[in-house]
Structure formats: structure tokens, C-alpha cells
């Protein structure tokens, strides 16, 4: 088997970020009086970062993969390339899998000049997943400190942002917050693109 030729013959077309939508998780609209177990409804209004998208309330899924908030635009220097270092603070594994899906042929995140780093020393952005755990508190801090400045912190998933239904959030502040349980690859990519201010 010549895998190079096989790869060329069986080439896969990378898709646009709007080509595939899912119902859950996606941006929700409306109001609801449901007694939400994660307090994602305050006076009937939706709080995205706390939502685990359990489909028990009356909010309606729009299918739009834009469940993110950009708290601070990231440095111009990252517009040419951005290296991500993922760290698992205390996940169920779903966010980890969605993160690796960023590099699948369907999404091919490299085309947006977004790459994965194997060490925080070479990373521009720390991608935090999962709830706070005692064991990972020090590791998380060390990873952040090991990164060269300027640096970005991206929180993905309800656990990292608010603790979700499992615990408490892994960090207090993020530059980019991507909600979802877990968030879709499209939401994660769109959040980074928006924060970079480039198309």
C-alpha cells in the first residue's frame, strides 16, 4: 500500500464552517421558567457559559454554531499563526475529542493558520478543558507560566467556563470562552477567528 497515492486518490474535501450544523449545542433563543440544574437561566434568560444543553427547558436551538464570547481581541502577531496547547484540567473526555476533531479533514484547522503545540513553551494559547481539580491546579498554573508572553487563554466547554453540572470552573478568566457541552469544532474555530479579527 502506497499511502501517499491512496491519500491523493481518496482525497477529502474540507468543508466550510457553515456547511455542517448541529442542533445541540448551538445558540439558543427564547425564555424559559425551567428550574435549570446548572443555573443557566436567570429570570428566564439564557446564560450561555453555564448551559449544558440538556434540552429540558423551553429554549429553542437555532443550529447556529456561535456559542462563544471574545473578551479580549488577541495580539496582531497571532494573525499569521497561532499555536494551541490543550490542557485537561478535569474533563469527561468529550471536549478532548472535539478539540482533536479540529484537525480532522472536515475542519482542517491548519488552513486558518492554527496549529497544535506539544509543549506550552512553544504555544501562543492555552486551551483549558474540564472542571477545576486539585491535582491539576498546579500543573495548569505551571503550563501558563511556561508560555512565552504575549499569551492567550481559551476556555472551552461548560466545565471550564462555569463548572457545568460537575464542579467549579478551572480558571477565573479567559480571553476567549467557547460554551457547549462539549462545544462543536465549528464554534471553537469561529471563536478564534473572531478574536484574531481576520477572515
Amino acid at each position: 500500500m502506497n499511502w501517499f497515492i491512496n491519500g491523493v486518490k481518496n482525497r477529502i474535501k474540507t468543508q466550510g464552517l457553515e456547511d455542517y450544523t448541529v442542533e445541540q449545542p448551538s445558540f439558543l433563543q427564547g425564555t424559559s421558567n425551567y428550574e435549570c440544574p446548572t443555573n443557566a437561566l436567570e429570570n428566564g434568560r439564557w446564560i450561555m457559559n453555564k448551559c449544558i444543553f440538556c434540552r429540558e427547558c423551553d429554549l429553542t436551538a437555532t443550529g447556529k454554531q456561535n456559542t462563544f464570547t471574545v473578551n479580549s481581541e488577541i495580539q496582531d502577531m497571532f494573525k499569521k499563526s497561532l499555536y494551541l496547547y490543550p490542557i485537561d484540567s478535569g474533563t469527561c473526555g468529550a471536549c478532548n475529542v472535539e478539540f482533536t476533531t479540529l484537525f480532522s479533514p472536515q475542519y482542517d484547522t491548519n488552513r486558518f493558520k492554527i496549529f497544535m503545540s506539544n509543549t506550552p513553551r512553544h504555544a501562543d494559547a492555552l486551551v483549558v478543558m474540564g472542571v477545576y481539580t486539585r491535582g491539576m491546579e498546579k500543573i495548569l498554573k505551571e503550563a501558563y507560566e511556561a508560555m512565552p508572553a504575549p499569551k492567550v487563554v481559551i476556555g472551552i466547554g461548560a466545565c471550564a467556563l462555569s463548572g457545568g453540572i460537575i464542579g467549579t470552573s478551572a480558571m477565573e478568566k479567559y480571553d476567549i470562552e467557547v460554551a457547549g457541552c462539549p462545544p462543536t469544532p465549528a464554534s471553537i474555530i469561529k471563536a478564534i477567528i473572531k478574536a484574531r479579527g481576520v477572515k
Partner: peptide, 16 residues
């Protein structure tokens, strides 16, 4: 396969 699961169960990981 994740997309097949999502189409059938409205969630990629069977949550809810």
C-alpha cells in the same frame, strides 16, 4: 460517525 449519532440523537455524545 459522530454526525450520524448527532442526526439520530441530536447530540454527538448521546447527552440527554
Amino acid at each position: 460517525v459522530a454526525r450520524i449519532i448527532s442526526r439520530a440523537f441530536s447530540h454527538r455524545y448521546y447527552f440527554s
